[in-house]
Simulated assay, not measured.
Amino acid sequence: MLNIKKNFGYLFIFFYLLSPTSLTADTSEIKEILQLIQKDLRTLERAVYSESFSQSSNSNSNNSVKESEDVLTRHLLKLSEIEKQFQQLTNKYEEINFKIDKLNSRLSKVQADNQLRFQQLETSNVGIDSSSLTKLPTDTTNDKEKILPGSTQPQDLGTVSYKDMTNESESQSVQSIDATKTVVTETFQSEEKILPDGTPENQYEFATSFLKVGDYNMAERAFKEFVDTNPEHKLSGNAQYWYAETFRIRQLYTDAASAYLEGYQKYPKSEKAPINLLKLGVSLVQIGEKDQGCLMISGVKKQYPGATQSVLQKAKYEEKKFECKQNNS
């Protein structure tokens, strides 16, 4: 409708200018007439726009409501995602604090253990029977430093005197053996058993509890005692694997490789046998035996094709990581 009115106005101006009266009119009058026509056109345009706006506002009210609801829904979803991310960050922060607390507790345990060992060494040195050492023969003819029996330098057969072959030398040798036996008996200390009385399953669970709290020294002792006590049990292969893991976690790769090798030889059909062979290969590579380690890693798929997919994928990853294929070729 607005376009029709504009066109009508333009035609009116055109015919008016072509009329003979317009040709004789003054230019100032023509300008005034054009200004009046422009004002009328603006008034018409405002009226048309107001009517179109009133009609479109009623038709678009429902659409605007729907759009506002969609926007609100998107904002709510975004807020829920932010809330989940914040919760994950909070969980990570709490996990890091927990690990720091575990490290502090482990350090305090190590310090206490070292202090206890130093005290035991001091008490063991004090506990040696000094009376057995005083009975040893000494050279009273001069003021030289006392020399324990058997610590002198070797002599030629021709230099041995008759005095050294008398009964006194025999008694001297017997006393030396007794004194050495006394020293060994005093310094030897056997570790106490830490596994509780009960079924092997309960003992295995007890040993596993040390791993959960991060006490790998006690876990090492517990799993070793379990394997020695129950060598034929179905859980012995698992216990041997976790025994080796206590060394690997502490970066004692030589001890870990030895323990993994013992588990591979004694328990080749246990539940942990595939991962045990894989960790054996990794430990060998880490101690410098790359060729042997790569053979063990690549042998996981050959010896245990029915292993879990995670173990097989881990073996493939370790092959690429250590470049085993290039090295073997």
Results as ranks from 00 to 15, higher is better:
200 P>F: 09
34 L>R: 03
227 V>Y: 06
122 E>V: 02
31 K>H: 06
22 S>C: 06
157 L>Q: 09
243 Y>T: 00
155 Q>M: 09
223 F>M: 12
230 N>M: 04
20 P>E: 00
156 D>T: 09
314 K>N: 14
146 K>H: 11
76 L>S: 13
288 G>W: 01
184 V>H: 11
251 Q>D: 15
18 L>A: 15
19 S>D: 09
296 M>Q: 14
37 I>S: 05
10 Y>S: 13
40 D>G: 11
45 E>H: 13
100 I>K: 11
62 N>V: 04
202 N>Q: 13
149 P>S: 09
326 Q>R: 14
213 V>H: 04
19 S>N: 07
227 V>D: 05
45 E>V: 06
282 V>A: 04
160 V>C: 07
61 S>R: 12
93 Y>K: 15
136 L>Y: 03
91 N>M: 11
33 I>M: 10
241 Y>E: 07
251 Q>G: 03
220 E>C: 09
323 E>Q: 11
169 S>R: 15
320 K>E: 14
154 P>E: 02
277 L>A: 07
115 Q>E: 10
155 Q>H: 10
4 I>S: 15
141 T>S: 14
28 S>N: 10
53 F>Y: 13
228 D>W: 03
226 F>N: 05
199 T>Q: 03
178 D>E: 12
223 F>C: 06
284 L>K: 07
65 V>T: 11
98 F>L: 14
304 Y>T: 00
215 D>A: 04
221 R>L: 12
91 N>L: 08
27 T>Q: 08
187 T>N: 12
231 P>G: 10
227 V>I: 07
85 Q>S: 11
67 E>V: 00
202 N>A: 14
282 V>G: 03
322 F>N: 13
250 R>M: 09
14 F>V: 13
37 I>M: 07
155 Q>W: 04
3 N>K: 15
303 Q>M: 10
181 K>F: 06
293 G>Y: 01
63 N>M: 03
115 Q>G: 06
